[in-house]
């Protein structure tokens, strides 16, 4: 045991020393890189600003090494967020002519998936035609996040030819990466809103329909209210609740009847009924008064409270329909 303990002690001392050296090495490398970038950055920012300020300015010389390339890309990406129109296009042109876009495109074929994901993300910001074919090819990448990143980049580029492929790639990941798929469809909503309707009516994926219902509602895309009305009657309560909210946000007075039905349907989950009540308030159609008054005395406190709030929006006085707290408590506890 004694020998083993001595060995263990030595191993631990070596492990601690290695870790400390690792921390120090990490710090040194980080500091060197950071210092070099801090030195390069002001000149790079100045060159980019001068180029953007003067339409006749010539393109700055391309980066001479990897460090300069990284700094130029960082500066450009930070600027692209703020820029619009002609200035944005000129900066993208600068990135193309200095070879930054080409190098980022090369990274789309990197072995490490993190690099590929980041490349796709950066290309989405750059919106360069030079990256189009590489992005289309990378829609078949092995990594789902890279595929979705490329789909988003192509949406930003407005690539009509690959629209169906983009929708297909995004739809396939709706259940596993709903957030990233939502981002792709948010872009599609701004580019080709009709694709949202097509995807909603053709898909059988519950996850995708939920995402699309949210986007249609939150972006108030009134062309697709008919799809939301259908989704409101779906057996999936989450989809129905999102559709009910969407119809309210759009202010679709054609869905008052469907919403009052959802509100009065005791088999529906609380979230559907409260969303229906809230939306009826937002729509402001007095045809809903009777249903809301009934629902305002519902034993479910949340439904009653949402209905009471909706009645206020419809011109009723607050207090006349205050929900029964005790009754609600019973329901909540149950």
């Amino acid at each position: 045991m004694s020998d083993a303990s001595v060995v263990a002690t030595l191993v631990l001392i070596i492990a601690i020393a290695v870790l400390v050296l690792l921390i120090l090495a990490q710090q040194i490398v980080h500091r060197i890189k950071r210092r070099a970038r801090l030195v390069l950055r002001p000149a790079c920012e100045l060159a980019v600003a001068e180029y953007l300020a003067d339409e006749n300015a010539s393109v700055p010389p391309p980066p001479r090494n990897n460090r300069e390339h990284v700094v130029l890309r960082q500066v450009a990406l930070a600027a692209l967020i703020e820029l619009r129109g002609r200035e944005r296009a000129r900066l993208t042109e600068l990135l193309e002519r200095t070879g930054v876009v080409a190098r980022t495109v090369e990274e789309l074929a990197a072995r490490r998936r993190t690099r590929r994901r980041r490349a796709a993300d950066m290309l989405a910001e750059m919106r360069s035609d030079q990256s189009r074919s590489a992005l289309v090819a990378a829609l078949d990448d092995l990594d789902a996040a890279t595929r979705l990143g490329c789909a988003r980049a192509l949406v930003e580029l407005g690539d009509d030819d690959s629209a169906d492929h983009i929708v297909e790639v995004a739809a396939a990941e709706a259940d596993t990466s709903p957030g990233a798929v939502g981002d792709v469809f948010l872009g599609i909503a701004a580019w080709k809103p009709s694709l949202l309707g097509e995807a909603m009516s053709s898909t059988s994926s519950r996850g995708l329909r939920r995402i699309l219902a949210s986007i249609i509602g939150e972006l108030r895309i009134s062309d697709h209210t008919a799809l939301l009305r259908v989704a409101l009657t779906d057996t999936d309560d989450e989809l129905a609740a999102r559709s009910a909210r969407g119809l309210g946000l759009i202010g679709d007075d054609g869905s008052v009847e469907a919403l009052t039905q959802a509100l009065g349907d005791a088999r529906r989950e609380r979230r559907v009924r409260t969303a229906a009540a809230t939306s009826l308030g937002w729509i402001g159609d007095r045809r809903a008064l009777a249903s809301l008054r009934t629902a305002a005395s519902s034993p479910d406190w949340a439904v009653a409270a949402a209905s009471a709030d909706a009645l206020v929006l419809l011109g009723e006085e607050r207090g006349a329909t205050r929900p029964d707290t005790e009754g609600g408590l019973t329901v909540a506890a149950a």
Partner: peptide
């Protein structure tokens, strides 16, 4: 977490209607 965190992640979250 690092591999998921992209250049635009935070900004997209801040602006996302979702």
């Amino acid at each position: 977490y690092r591999s998921r965190l992209l250049h635009s992640s935070l900004r997209r979250t801040v602006r996302s209607p979702l």
